[in-house]
Nucleic acid binder design. Structure first.
Lengths: 331, 331
DNA sequence: TTGTAGGCGTTATCAT
DNA sequence: ATGATAACGCCTACAA
């Protein structure tokens, strides 16, 4: 691989001048610039980022950690992060925590060894300890959290207003005439799922609907696989006419079960999910849902990081995005 | 950030000895090893991969390029690649081509600048030019292709036997009693989609079924959005009783349309997809499909790369994985 | 078993 | 506008 040394030899110019050309320094004449570029072309020169990183202390690498890339929301966020950051000439390195605190730590450690310039992080469900993140921030490496954020005072973050989304979804069901609305809640360890539950409860309260703990099911996907749970619920409460599920997968699954039980959606029971995952458009009926604004979130998170990267001092700010109600056939 | 220099000062040992400890050299006594490790702990030492990479020429970074990470198959492959390679102490950097040759090239160029030790690549639909890949291979940087491979003589690759998968799917429909089976084909620019078409044709031929070009629809998802195409097809050919779609998304969509048209699946028409995407288990009816062995593919590709990385000379081999028929309710 | 020293490719400081 | 040179943190002959 050709280095600036080779170009220096070929052109007769010094290393310093050649280096300046590739760093777009104004302190170089157009004539020599051209000469260098021509030589670079000829030698098929590729700058060595490792060397530049070592010398300058800037790796031009941003680390991104998400729980899973195989998730419509996160991959959407990643797409816009990637776009924004690669336009700013950064490389991004994506890691998955698979919801494990240990894997998340490993990824952060790799990031430190790789000298990343910044980190974008959506924490795993289990994460409780933020020592490594603190350490990064102490080393003036900016960290921006998105979607899943810790309860740290001093940090930058972009989140969705999950409370509002759940409120919108539940209100929509009420507007459509539902009287008895149940909620299928998510893992209570995840704060956003709790927010969704609160939004559901408050929407009911605001419209003077009864709120009952019996109507809030905290079931995993696996537990739902046994459809007797839902069956019994509907046998005990035949008046149920609305379901707000905390996620689209669950809503698809519930619709599946209802259909199997001979309950028509949306005629008898209206169902709304959360996430606006791709397949919600390809089901029968198409599923109403709440869009999580993945694109906006990625963009905003990347922009916040870039700002921290460029500015001398790091400003901490919390951004909250508003979700969007997507009305389809299931309601 | 503490460096080996700091450890050297603290322990009174030389740089070389300290370095040896972190490289697990046997040429160091247990006593000094412990002393060094203790000092490292105290100073919170993190090795600087950039420096190591620059000096050793090995970055310990593997570049992976896929068309889209938001794709159940590719993210599955990535998961097993990640697992295998991180166990071997490699960092992986994932890029998406978004089916663009230009973005793919950009990613490859980034990889070169980052001095990646190896590349795992699933080429985009548009890619026709392999100069950059050739350049990498010329520089003794091993490249392993997976799933989407070029027609290069000298290269390593892991692919699925798409022909066989399509053959299995079509045969399954025939076994289930279908007499008139149509195929919804994929973009003919992608070789695997053509293989699937051939598998469909040959399965029909083998069982003495008629093959008609009219029964092969090459439609994009967007074109299918207008359901009149399917409607007309069924009006013109009311005897159609089987559909083999080249992908699961399409099969879900087709089932949606059929249901809307009042055609029952699987009673009147049986439908099988390809891919075994997550949602195929959560639909009603659950969709029969062909599993693409993403996990095995990632594992094998990673293993092949590791072998090339460790061995002196690079051996080129082509591996072909057999798909698996997953029978569910839609057939 | 440990130490010395040169160099990987680049950037940055100082001088010219 | 250009050049000489030290340094970034680490590895590795070679020497001891």
């Amino acid at each position: 691989m050709a280095s600036i040394k080779d170009i220096s030899k070929l052109t007769g110019l010094s290393l310093a001048t050649v280096s300046r050309v590739f760093n777009n320094s104004p302190l170089v004449s157009e004539k020599t610039r051209q000469k260098v570029l021509k030589a670079a072309e000829k030698l098929d020169y590729q700058p060595n980022m490792m060397a530049a990183a070592l010398r300058s202390g800037k790796s031009k690498i941003i680390g991104v950690i998400v729980p899973e890339i195989n998730n419509h929301f996160f991959s959407g966020v990643i797409n816009s992060i990637e776009k924004k950051l690669s336009d700013a000439d950064y490389n991004i390195i994506i890691s998955q925590s698979h919801e494990s605190e240990e894997l998340e730590k490993k990824a952060l450690q790799s990031f430190m060894k790789l000298n990343v310039d910044g980190v974008l992080l959506s924490i795993s469900k289990e994460t409780t300890d933020f020592l490594l993140v603190q350490k990064l921030m102490n080393q003036k490496i900016p960290v921006v959290f998105f979607d899943r954020t810790p309860k740290l005072e001093v940090s930058s973050s972009v989140v969705l207003d999950d409370y509002k989304g759940a409120f919108m979804a539940t209100s929509h069901l009420i507007d459509k005439g539902c009287k008895q609305i149940i909620h299928i809640a998510g893992d209570p360890k995840v704060s956003i799922f709790n927010k969704r539950k609160e939004g559901y409860i408050d929407a009911l309260k605001q419209k003077n609907h009864d709120v009952s703990e019996d109507f809030i099911l905290t079931l995993t996907h696996d537990q739902l696989r046994d459809m007797s749970v839902i069956k019994q619920l509907f046998q005990n409460n035949p008046k149920i006419d609305g379901i707000f599920a905390h996620g689209d997968e669950i809503s698809l699954y519930v619709i599946n079960i209802l259909t199997t039980l001979g309950i028509q959606v949306p005629k008898q029971v209206k169902v709304i999910g959360f996430g606006n995952v791709d397949f919600t458009e390809h089901t029968y009926p198409r599923i109403s849902t709440i869009d999580q604004k993945s694109h906006e979130m990625g963009l905003l998170a990347a922009e916040m990081l870039l700002k921290s990267l460029n500015d001398e001092e790091i400003i901490h700010s919390q951004q909250i995005l508003s979700p969007e109600l997507i009305i389809r056939e299931s309601t």
